[in-house]
Nucleic acid binder design. Structure first.
Length: 494
RNA sequence: GGUCAGUUGGCCGAGUGGCUAGGUCCCGGUCUGCAAAACCGGUUACGGCGGUUCGAGUCCGCCACUGACCUCCA
């Protein structure tokens, strides 16, 4: 079966076909490490982790490149151009690289919490200054950029005219060039530009600017868009398969990347499939610094934020994100997160039950059909919510088999286990909550087992006072006992 | 102001021209010493007004509202 993906460039779902059979090149715009990651950052990286896992599981050899933006971002406030990293470094009294390392480490920690698989290559902007300068030189040589006072700007009007047929500017974000040329707000260096919408490829560094590199045009730093063009080209080539990122990057970032790359690659469009995830909202508004409604990931995990009723496990957040389609907005809320928490718990409990299910000579649950439905869902433009709804059908079936109202053969049970493991763990990337080291865990289990044994004996002699006391006290420690037909089961919550 | 997207049940969130999405919550039942879990059943829905159609949340038009992008952004 084929994977279909919604391509922002064509505005429709397309069957995914890699440029080189069995190989996929995927570039995803990574974070700017000038601050702590927030809930909004969770979405793209979980979404593209899902895509990466799906492609890998489907047998593709995937090169997944995700950059770290550690230089070159401007903070434009109508005044002077500032480098986001260096301005934050001054604020935190850190060396720029110290700051970058701090937030990069935090970002990596958060990605691990979410069980996101590391990208194949994680290039940094500061590590690719040479490549960026080379690219700017190439664009200058081609005649699509001009230098003014040590800064280099992209000549948008010339590009738009010459490349109208091959790679029209505005196609990706669906806007009209003439309007853009007029409506762009006043930015720094506006007087240097031939057209208001021209964007910087290289900026001259003012004297007080800390992060600066020598270039043919004097000391300066790269423009925002050039890093992704240069790094994707270096590791994935002139033309690669998938370019991903948040919807808010469509314009101007991706549009400009495309233009720069097209100039350098003889009009070739840098990527075939452009995949964009939608935003996480909070009370209906996009989560972002400028809206003052940011919940940092550390706050989410600790529950330490006025908007949070409780701490949330990273897996709960992953599940919450996967329960919505990546192209829809997802509204944050305690109720939604709590229902995701409960649902995930139920799903995981059922997954754990599969091995213990009684086997019969016949099956009354159609495992093949279930498996096919799961594939159909996820291959249809990553429809994880539908996939999850099918998984809950399986949850119901698993519980019914345990109850004895449904039956399954040992062969089907194996397939069921295999299918559930594939989708829950390999593709959705969920994992069981586990705390403590193994030795501690073993000891704890033995201890609980002993208490349960004592309680079972108390129950047998109808000493309910003792049995309830054991159950209640264990409950107080977060150990829940459940009497089932097969005996007493327990669960340790972390 | 321009461009685009959305408006689904208490909450989150899919889908789609005709059959229960799913989760969570709430109510009733089964099981159980009780509880929990599980299972069974039930309740609440497609922004408004017109149109197309045998049939529309689903297609078309208008209106209302919300949001995103147009500026750093995931």
């Amino acid at each position: 079966m084929d994977l279909s993906l919604y391509n922002t460039l064509t505005r429709k779902k397309e069957i995914f076909q890699p440029i080189t059979p069995c190989h996929v090149g995927m570039y995803v715009c990574g974070p700017t490490v000038s601050g702590e990651s927030h809930l909004g950052h969770a979405r793209p990286y979980i979404t593209f982790d899902l895509l990466y896992r799906l492609l890998t599981h489907s047998g593709y050899k995937v090169r997944y490149v995700r950059n770290i933006t550690d230089a070159g971002h401007f903070e434009e406030e109508g005044r002077e151009a500032e480098d986001k990293i260096s301005s934050k470094a001054i604020l935190e009294k850190l060396e720029p690289m110290e700051l970058v390392t701090k937030y990069t480490n935090l970002f990596h920690w958060a990605m691990r919490q979410f069980n996101n698989i590391d990208p194949s290559i994680e290039p940094t902007a500061t590590g690719h200054i040479v490549e960026q300068i080379e690219m700017v030189k190439k664009i200058l040589a081609e005649g699509y950029a001009y230098e003014v006072n040590g800064s280099v700007y992209f000549d948008l009007r010339k590009y738009a005219t010459d490349f109208a047929k091959v790679s029209p500017y505005g196609k990706l974000s669906g806007r009209i060039l003439d309007e853009m040329l007029e409506t762009t707000r006043d930015l720094d260096g506006q007087d240097e530009k031939r057209n208001k919408a021209d964007f910087a490829l290289w900026k001259k560094a003012p004297a007080e600017h800390i992060m600066r590199w020598p270039s043919p045009w004097g000391d300066g730093f790269p423009g925002w868009h050039i890093e992704c063009s240069a790094m994707s080209r270096k590791y994935l080539g002139d033309e690669f398969d998938i370019h991903g990122g948040g919807m808010d990057l469509q314009f101007p970032h991706h549009e400009s990347e495309m233009a720069q790359s097209s100039v350098c690659h003889g009009g070739k469009i840098m990527a075939r499939y452009w995949v964009h995830n939608n935003m996480i909202t909070i009370n209906g508004k996009k989560m972002g610094k400028s809206y003052n409604n940011v919940i940092k990931l550390t706050e989410l995990f600790s529950g330490d934020h006025p908007l949070l009723d409780q701490p949330y496990n990273p897996m709960t957040i992953r599940f919450f994100v996967l329960q919505s389609h990546y192209r829809s907005t997802l509204d944050f809320g305690n109720e939604g997160l709590q229902s995701a928490e409960k649902g995930l718990e139920r799903l995981m409990r059922a997954v754990e039950r599969i091995d213990k299910l009684p086997e019969s000579l016949i099956s009354t649950f159609e495992v093949f059909k279930f498996r096919d439905k799961c594939w159909e869902a996820i291959l249809d433009d990553l429809n994880s919510p539908i996939l999850i709804s099918h998984l809950f059908d399986a949850v119901k079936a698993i519980n019914s088999i345990a109850e004895g109202t449904l039956k399954i053969t040992s062969e089907d049970k194996k397939l069921l286990k295999e299918t559930v493991d594939t989708f829950v763990f390999d593709i959705l990337g969920l994992k069981m909550a586990a705390g403590g080291n193994n030795a501690d865990r073993d000891r704890l289990n033995q201890l609980v087992s002993m208490m349960v044994q004592l309680r079972t004996e108390a129950k047998a002699r109808k000493d309910y006072a003792t049995s309830d006391q054991i159950r209640n006290q264990l409950a107080g420690m977060g150990i829940m006992l459940k009497d089932t037909k097969e005996g007493c089961e327990w669960e340790i919550s972390d």
